[in-house]
Design a protein around this nucleic acid. Structure first.
Lengths: 152, 152
DNA sequence: CAATTCGTTCAATCTGGATTGAACGAAATC
DNA sequence: GATTTCGTTCAATCCAGATTGAACGAATTG
């Protein structure tokens, strides 16, 4: 589980240690402290600190205060599906909408170039077609979201 | 467009140059040779060679032989949606199915540990629950595919 | 208040993988 | 057949970003 989490994060361009922390906590039968993570994963306290903070910010894990312990421990929060959804709304969706704006500006500047005679009508038609294709794809990708949410 | 392709590839953990090549070809009004790519993108011929080969393998671009030219040129193939679908069947789906197998083996070894008294029934129940949660999520993700294909 | 225990931060280091220059082989041209 | 023009391959290099050790500050304990 630790290895799987590490590889998944590395595949996504995220710190491997972060995935390892989640993997360990996911099958731990009790909340773990920072030093537990350091010891069991063989990572530095610095990595453990930044990793847990990142996972907390994503709502993947949470701090809990155990009776008799004065430092916080960590445990995973239940639903994994929420992580996937969060990944969509945090990562994919903003990029899709921002690139939609960029596409619009590219289209308008393309029209300008045609008006100034920098492009033949032929060339303009080809580029405009490709850009509208992209725009259409983006709209579809954005429309999938509500459908997918019903499934997950 | 070049920058967008480069950044997208970099985000996905792919060579930036590959994305740049696709971005340039996507708005080019004519097929380009390897040396065109080298010149216009400022990348080495080695990067251009491996990049075009990768994109050809994905069906993102294709070679065309222009009359009077003895070396092949490259152009994008139209539908972008096919790329997204290919990304799913090539990357996501295999990983989902392989990790499904791994999950099953983990579950069975977990049962063994319970039988050998290495785990309390309490601990076994918690781990088994989390594993079945994961398995359920994977099944859902796999089931989304046919739905999404109708949309894109 | 001193001493200890933590978590955080930051500069330095390490590393996986992209990039590249050069060598190579194939094909075409003369 | 010699020469030039290509595309490919591979070892060396480079780089972004993950990791870490050490220093720091806050909180707690004696």
């Amino acid at each position: 589980m630790i290895a799987a989490g590490g590889r998944l994060c590395q595949l996504l361009g995220l710190p491997r240690s972060t995935g390892q922390i989640y993997g360990l906590l996911y099958l731990s039968t009790r909340p773990l402290s920072l030093d537990d993570l350091v010891e069991q994963l063989g990572i530095s306290k610095a990595s453990a600190s930044t990793g847990t903070r990142l996972l907390c910010a994503w709502g993947a894990i949470q701090q809990v205060w155990l009776a008799g312990e004065r430092r916080p421990h960590f445990e995973v929060v239940a639903e994994v599906g929420r992580l996937v959804r969060g990944c969509y709304t945090e990562f994919i969706k903003p990029r899709l909408t921002s690139s939609q704006r960029r596409l619009e500006s590219m289209t308008s500047s393309l029209d300008e170039e045609l008006a100034h005679g920098l492009l033949t009508p032929e060339e303009h038609r080809l580029c405009a077609n490709r850009l509208t294709n992209l725009a259409r794809l983006q709209k579809k990708l954005l429309r999938i979201a509500p459908v997918a949410e019903k499934f997950i």
